[in-house]
Computed example of a mutant assay.
Amino acid sequence: MRVGAGGLVLLYLLAAPLSPALAWHAYVVKVLDGDSLRVKKGNRILEIRLYGIDAPEYGQSYGEQAKRFTRRLTYKKTVSLTSKDMDRYGRIVALVKSDGRLVSRELVREGLAWVYPKYCLEQPLCSSLKRLEYKARRARRGLWKAKNPVSPWKWKQRERSRGQNGRR
């Protein structure tokens, strides 16, 4: 089978979002929460999950602040993405840069997200994020102002168990 130049461009546009080594660009059309976006690439709308972090959920302290912060950094902007994985919900997990700034890093620095130890495995990036989280904790920035903030993965687990026990 022979593919013409137009076909190669189409193949690239379809494959680029899932290619882990290539950076690609897309326009942010919606910020869903602190760590999730919808972007437009060509005619496609793609859901993106920020790599390596977990921001507070809706109904959780600092959830709205994390969403506003991510919105300020990304909404209605063209961002650079480097795909890392696909999550169980079909979202592309990616490193997202806006105006040259890694959005995950900025959220952690401001105390608006946790490093997600189960999924943040890339080095030296994840060690760097853990250091930033430690500094935010020490400075009591953002969610670290609370005595014992609950991580989103523990909060979701607790909410699920409450639902199963009928204690809503």
Rank of each mutant, 00 (worst) to 15 (best):
M1S: 11
R2H: 08
R2C: 10
V3L: 11
A5W: 10
G6E: 12
G6T: 10
G6D: 14
G6A: 13
G7D: 14
G7R: 09
L8C: 07
L8V: 10
L11H: 01
Y12F: 13
Y12L: 13
A16Y: 05
P17Y: 04
S19N: 14
P20V: 13
A21I: 11
L22W: 12
L22K: 11
L22R: 08
H25E: 15
H25G: 12
H25W: 09
A26V: 13
A26C: 15
Y27V: 01
Y27D: 06
V29Q: 09
K30E: 08
V31F: 00
V31Y: 00
D33V: 02
G34E: 00
S36E: 05
L37A: 02
V39E: 00
K40L: 15
K40S: 13
G42S: 05
N43I: 13
E47C: 06
E47G: 05
E47H: 05
L50Y: 05
L50P: 02
Y51R: 03
D54M: 06
D54R: 08
D54V: 00
A55P: 05
A55K: 00
P56K: 08
E57S: 05
S61F: 10
Y62T: 03
E64Q: 11
Q65R: 09
Q65N: 06
Q65H: 03
A66N: 00
K67H: 06
F69Q: 01
T70N: 01
R71D: 01
R72H: 07
R72Q: 10
R72I: 07
Y75G: 00
Y75P: 02
K76F: 10
K76H: 14
K77S: 09
T78I: 14
L81F: 09
S83M: 02
K84H: 05
D85C: 09
M86C: 02
D87Y: 12
D87A: 07
R91Y: 00
I92P: 01
L95F: 12
K97H: 13
K97A: 10
S98P: 08
S98V: 11
D99W: 06
D99A: 11
G100F: 07
R101V: 08
L102F: 13
V103E: 02
E106H: 04
L107F: 05
V108D: 03
R109M: 03
E110A: 14
E110S: 09
E110H: 01
G111L: 05
G111W: 00
L112Q: 06
L112P: 02
A113K: 00
W114S: 04
K118E: 13
Y119D: 05
L121W: 10
Q123N: 09
P124R: 06
P124Y: 06
L125N: 02
C126T: 04
C126M: 03
S127N: 13
S127Q: 10
L129H: 04
L129E: 04
K130E: 15
R131P: 00
R131V: 08
E133I: 10
Y134A: 14
K135Q: 14
K135S: 10
K135A: 15
K135F: 12
R140D: 04
R140W: 03
R141W: 06
R141F: 13
G142H: 01
G142M: 03
L143Q: 03
L143I: 12
K145Y: 06
K147A: 14
K147D: 15
K147E: 13
V150R: 02
V150Q: 10
V150N: 02
S151R: 07
W153E: 07
W153K: 04
Q157Y: 12
R158M: 15
S161N: 13
G163R: 12
G163P: 03
Q164P: 00
N165R: 15
R167W: 08
R168V: 14
